[in-house]
Amino acid sequence: MHANNRTPLVLTLLAVVFVGLAAAFYSDSWGYPPPRAAIPLVDKALLDTATVRRSYADLIRAKEDLSDFDCYGCHDKKQPPPLRYDENQKLIVPPEHSDVVMGHGSHGRNNNCFNCHNENNLTTLQPRDGRELKLENSTQLCGSCHGPTYRDWDSGAHGRTNGYWNTKLGPALKKDCVNCHNPHSPRFPGRKPAPGPHTLHPSDTADRAAEAESPSTH
């Protein structure tokens, strides 16, 4: 008899619990993670597959203005242009060629324009063996000193190739030395790395940023 009297009470309590559960589900009280932090999209420049520089051969292929390479527009055809050096035997680059940064090799001895350019015909290049090379064949000039690298480039182990690995289906576009290296200052410049991976939890990222700010000694 006592149990029978308690039934309405239990049922009422159960009903209250159910109603409470229903309300909680509808109001999304739990089970939903906090919103994720926004991750900025990467700069489309990072996706560019173009090389850093364009070679003379590229300019010819694209039929572009080649007036910059008209050496005898300014120079005298009859005599080689004179070179001037400062007291440390460093070449003085004339203001007309201020875009040229002389930095080929860390020894500082490769400071003569005519190590590579042909002084008797400025529109061509001349390696030390005396050959005359057109500007678009500059890889052979590079190879005349950098033999092992030239060998690697020739076999495909050094340098860039874009396009098709399967040449039956399309062209393989092999890049020249000067597509990536500035011949006057060939060392590869450092660059800022693209953003690293982001974590799901912004606090981790903030910690990492703080860590990067502080001078690290590792």
Binding site: L46, T49, G156, G159, R160, T161, Y164, W165, G170, F188
Partner: peptide
């Protein structure tokens, strides 16, 4: 890309030519 004869995307974008791919 590669089954259509082309190079992978990571290779084409590499500025130093460190990545090499083929048959």
């Amino acid at each position: 890309r590669t089954r259509a004869g082309r190079y992978p995307a990571c290779l084409e974008v590499c500025p130093t030519g460190s990545r090499k791919f083929g048959n």
